[in-house]
């Protein structure tokens, strides 16, 4: 029996472009050095599945303004702290006196609001189908408990329309394991019927290598394929309770993806009855439009049209300490991973 490594190592077929959609896959693939062991015929492309990367810079501007002008306590995942806005990041807002708390869960933000009823607490809700139900849970509980000082600044996105937008960017997709936990695999079956190949997989070295071996093996027939390589966690039907909850609290809207532009129906906003927990409604702020560097190639990188070092800004004006574009912003972005894990060791 051949191991996953042997199958990958011996691949000598036509060039295959495989897009890992999920930022955590990107992170693990770089951390493990998986790109470095691939034969020339296999190429990994990092897709748009890092919510921090695709969050438009105007979102940070909104959060900074809530913190500094509305004096709200901002609760956020650590991922967002260093992301630059048009003028400043949350870290620089904090140094100017803003109260910015790093939390592990949206539910912690709700608890903080309940323990400090005199302060307005705003949770920065970014993320895809994996993360959104936690925010919805917090909002539903806040409504049940009549909490008046808790709200959410939402930039939540959903993946299905993004897959549509990415069609043709790769020969096969590594679908995001933990998004699939929630959504199930029906969409991937449908995409497969439309000619889009993909594999759902987990995040350990073994799981990622097995998925790549599966891409290699299943590509041989030349027919589109879908395989769930993470069935102990991902069920075909997903997590129905989570999907119901999201549908109860939020509804689809158009959303801007930093680097990709506007994708219709790919965002989520609060349904009317939960509007009191929408920070934009509560504080009367309108969605801000940030300014991106026009020379940035992030959009093309996210669509797999070029690699980070091909960008004129990469490693020069755009570094993890001073990111200019979406993919350099988060540790899970393609450019940041390329920069930090050094695509070439001996430069």
């Amino acid at each position: 029996m051949k191991s996953a490594r042997e199958i990958i190592d011996s691949y000598d077929g036509r060039p295959l472009r495989i897009m890992e959609v999920c930022g955590t896959h990107t992170h693990e693939i770089f951390r493990l050095g998986i790109r470095r062991i691939l034969p020339p015929g296999l190429k990994l492309i990092s897709g748009p599945g890092c919510p921090v990367c695709v969050t438009p810079c105007g979102y940070i501007d909104e959060a900074v303004s809530l913190a500094l002008e509305k004096n709200a306590v901002i609760c956020t995942f650590g991922d967002l702290i260093r992301v630059p806005g048009s003028n400043m990041s949350l870290a620089s807002a904090r140094s100017r006196g803003a109260e910015i708390r790093t939390v592990y869960s949206p539910l912690d933000a709700l608890e903080l609001a309940q323990s400090d009823p005199d302060r307005q607490v705003v949770f920065l809700s970014v993320g895809f189908e994996t993360t959104t139900p936690g925010s919805c849970l917090a909002v539903r509980k806040a409504a049940e408990r009549g909490v008046k000082n808790f709200s959410i600044l939402s930039a939540n996105k959903t993946m299905p329309r993004a897959y549509e937008a990415l069609k043709g960017s790769a020969d096969a997709f590594l679908y995001p394991g933990h998004v699939s936990v929630m959504t199930g695999t029906a969409l991937y079956e449908r995409l497969c019927a439309e000619g889009v190949s993909g594999i759902v997989t987990g995040f350990t070295a073994d799981e990622i290598l097995t998925a790549l071996a599966a891409v290699v093996e299943l590509s041989r027939s030349g027919k589109p394929f879908f395989r769930n390589c993470y069935p102990r966690v991902v069920r075909p039907e997903g997590n129905p309770a989570a999907v119901r909850l999201m549908d109860q609290v939020m509804e689809p809207c158009d959303a801007e993806w930093r680097g990709l532009g506007m994708i219709p129906g790919s965002g989520l906003k609060f349904r009317d009855r939960f509007a009191p927990f929408d920070a934009r409604v509560k504080f009367g702020i309108s969605e801000l439009r940030g300014r991106d560097n026009p020379a940035c190639s992030c959009g093309r990188i996210l669509r797999g049209e070029c690699m980070p070092p091909d960008c004129p800004l990469f490693g020069k004006v755009c570094t993890p300490a001073h990111p200019a574009g979406a993919c350099m912003v988060s540790g899970e972005g393609a450019c940041s991973a390329f920069y930090q894990y050094g695509e070439k060791i001996d430069e």
Partner: peptide
């Protein structure tokens, strides 16, 4: 600093920098 990873590949250990921030989403 080059890191020999658990799959036997070599990659760079990212240079440490800045505040340690949890990565969640």
């Amino acid at each position: 600093v080059v890191m020999l990873t658990e799959i036997g590949a070599k990659t760079l250990l990212p240079r440490p920098g800045g505040e340690l921030l949890p990565r969640i989403c």
